[in-house]
Amino acid sequence: MAKDVEFEFDIVVSLPKGAGDEDAIMDALFEAGCDDAVVGLGASGLVGLGFTRGGEDAEVVISNAVKQVLSALPEGAQLREVKPDLVSLADVADRLSVSRQALQKRDMPPPSLGGLYRASEMLPVLEAQPGKVRDALEAARGWFASAAAAQKINARASLGQS
C-alpha cells in the first residue's frame, strides 16, 4: 500500500467578467470544501488558491482540488495554471530557504523556457547536491512531489482537456 504524501500546490483560475464579489467567491469556495486553501483575490479577474493536501497520488489529489474549485466558481471560470510547473531559481531558493546564488553555483538541469526550469526535473539534481541545499529539501518535498502532476494537468488544460 502506498503511503500518503502531503502535496503542496497552487491553483490559478481566471474568472468571467462580473464574477461577483469577493465575499460570495470566498463563501462558495468554503462551501465546496476548499476551506483548507489560502485564497488570493488580489489580481483582477484571477483567483489563486494554495493547498497542502494529503494522498497517495499527486495527480488525483490536484485534479480533485481543481474540480472542487471550478465547481464553486461562476460558470465560465477557467483553470489557468497549476503550480509548481515552470519555476525560477528564485522560486526554488525561496522554498529551500537558500539564496538564488547558492543554486547558481551548482549544476542545474537546463532551463526550459525563458530561464524557467521544470520543477519536476529539479528534485533529483538537488538531491545530488552537497550541503545546505540538499539538507533543505525535506521541508520542500511536498512542493516538489506535486510538480510532475502539475505539469501533466497544465498540459491537458492547454489542450482544452481539463
Score class of each variant (00 low, 15 high):
residue 41 L to N: 00
residue 80 R to E: 10
residue 29 L to H: 02
residue 13 V to H: 01
residue 139 A to G: 08
residue 20 G to F: 11
residue 13 V to S: 03
residue 118 R to S: 09
residue 160 G to T: 08
residue 90 A to E: 13
residue 127 E to Q: 13
residue 82 V to R: 04
residue 7 F to A: 05
residue 12 V to L: 12
residue 153 I to D: 00
residue 12 V to M: 09
residue 146 S to A: 07
residue 63 S to K: 08
residue 70 L to I: 13
residue 154 N to C: 13
residue 58 A to Q: 08
residue 151 Q to M: 06
residue 39 V to G: 00
residue 20 G to P: 01
residue 37 A to W: 02
residue 126 L to C: 05
residue 115 G to K: 06
residue 157 A to K: 03
residue 98 V to F: 10
residue 145 A to T: 05
residue 95 R to K: 15
residue 86 L to V: 08
residue 59 E to Q: 11
residue 69 V to G: 03
residue 129 Q to H: 12
residue 84 P to C: 09
residue 35 D to G: 06
residue 43 A to F: 13
residue 4 D to K: 05
residue 10 D to V: 08
residue 118 R to K: 13
residue 126 L to N: 07
residue 130 P to L: 11
residue 142 G to D: 04
residue 105 K to E: 11
residue 32 A to M: 07
residue 43 A to Q: 11
residue 49 L to R: 00
residue 23 D to S: 12
residue 86 L to A: 00
residue 78 Q to A: 15
residue 30 F to K: 13
residue 26 M to N: 15
residue 58 A to C: 05
residue 66 V to N: 02
residue 137 L to H: 04
residue 109 P to V: 01
residue 132 K to V: 09
residue 76 G to F: 02
residue 12 V to Q: 05
residue 43 A to N: 09
residue 134 R to C: 08
residue 161 Q to F: 14
residue 117 Y to G: 01
residue 8 E to P: 00
residue 93 A to S: 06
residue 27 D to A: 12
residue 104 Q to W: 08
residue 118 R to P: 04
residue 1 M to G: 06
residue 101 Q to D: 10
residue 155 A to L: 14
residue 156 R to Y: 14
residue 33 G to D: 03
residue 48 G to N: 00
residue 12 V to P: 04
residue 162 S to K: 08
residue 141 R to G: 11
residue 66 V to K: 02
residue 48 G to V: 14
residue 152 K to F: 01
residue 69 V to S: 05
residue 22 E to W: 05
residue 39 V to M: 04
residue 42 G to H: 13
residue 10 D to E: 15
residue 81 E to F: 09
residue 154 N to Y: 02
residue 139 A to I: 11
residue 85 D to L: 06
residue 161 Q to D: 15
residue 135 D to G: 09
residue 112 S to T: 15
residue 32 A to F: 05
